[in-house]
Design a protein around this nucleic acid. Structure first.
Lengths: 225, 225
DNA sequence: ATTATATTTTAGTTTGGACTAAAAATTAAA
DNA sequence: TTTAATTTTTAGTCCAAACTAAAATATAAT
């Protein structure tokens, strides 16, 4: 059987795998908010179902079958997020939580209808790519805003959607995907950055800035962008 | 806690209460497709939570609190059904199953948005009334098509949405809510009825006809409607 | 290389919600 | 009014998925 819990594990594994390479028991425990021991037992089950491979004490890796399911759920999630925003005007800091539940119960048929209505979009409101039904994903590479040097410009590729409060903060500065940013200065010791967003100047803490991914990075001689 | 299972029980109890008066263990068992023993134990739990009252061997009755939850879920269900049809073109025989799952995970906020977008509708695609958020429902009274006598006319109030195949059959005859019907003849021993639907003549078995509720019944002298 | 710390796994419980089989209560039939 | 049939409840299991506490392994520090 394919329970909601299993889907959540596979999705979490996929995410961690992508952004940190290795998927440890602890990282899963933290991401899913369950005890490490619970993770271990679920891992065993998923391994039996051939959805992932693992060696004791050495982390897990999704199999083809496991990845297929993970991507299917992620696809649901992102299409739903975009649909909620576009069709129903749900603010971008709320779409995640709503999608988190709906993604497990939507039918493929309805998903197809939504996909069509949206015109087969390629990314969600936070800039993450929407996997195709066949399992292909185009991850465009980007680096955290905190890695830019003063004088560099770029555009927002995506932002983390894990915390509504953070999203609201980011949104207030206009830091949506595709927004042009320039780093004016960076304070040392993980201090705040001074940035320009489409001509407006802001100061943002590195804590928040690390959740904003930038692409298309260049040096700009001009004062503006 | 308020689990999906609990919500399903309360909804089922509300439905049965409305259309059969008494809610027995067996009727619930059948409607929910679970063993009678399972129903008994769930009833005990719901009783402890003060969502219903019951005396052993004598059926159950929702409390105010129980009814409130039931109506909330039914409201979700019906709004979702209508939304799926109107906004996404999901055919009317499929909206039920989709809503059956979504109804448990939709937020009140999103529901409000959907309600607004639909213009605060009062009934779903099958003719059932949509409860208000405060728990009021206007059930318009109607009788099964099988209870009409030859020569009587009326209009479709609602149809049962429990079986997609049945709905497709009914839909093919144009028997949507508000459609005008005239009973031309009825064969004895629960035989088929000959009816006119908006000028078209059909023969329908009583098995199917009993799931169609009619309102606004009159006698018509004319050949047509 | 040992010890200390951190991570992961085992072992054993708990909880929700289902199940079967058998007993008890109710209702219907002879 | 006894017997038979139906309905409902007990009693005891099972499974998924979480938990805690304690043991095992791996990694880091001295």
């Amino acid at each position: 059987m394919r329970t909601e819990s299993i889907e959540d594990y596979l999705k979490a594994i996929y995410d961690i795998q992508k952004e940190m390479g290795k998927v440890s028991t602890n990282s899963l425990s933290e991401k899913l908010n369950v005890a490490p021991a619970s993770v271990t037992s679920m891992i065993k089950k998923l391994s039996l179902k051939k959805l992932l491979t693992y060696k004791r004490y050495q982390g897990v890796k999704l199999t083809k079958a496991g990845q297929k399911i993970a991507l299917e759920i992620i696809r649901h999630h992102r299409l739903i997020e975009l649909y909620l925003q576009e069709a129903l005007g749900v603010p971008w800091d709320l779409v995640h939580d709503e999608a988190e539940k709906w993604e497990h119960v939507i039918s493929e048929d309805l998903e197809e209808r939504i996909d069509k209505k949206l015109g087969y979009p390629i990314s969600d409101p936070h800039g993450s790519p929407i996997p195709k039904r066949d399992g292909t994903v185009i991850e465009l590479d980007s680096i955290p805003l905190t890695d830019l040097k003063p004088g560099q410009t770029g555009e927002v590729a995506k932002v983390s959607d894990h915390d509504p409060k953070l999203l609201r903060y980011i949104g207030d500065m206009g830091l949506y995907p595709k927004a042009k940013v320039k780093v004016v200065s960076v304070e040392p010791f993980s201090g705040p950055l001074t940035i320009n967003v489409e001509k407006n100047k802001y100061i943002i803490g590195s804590e928040a800035a690390q959740y904003i991914s930038i692409t298309n990075i260049k040096f700009s001689k001009s004062e503006l962008i």
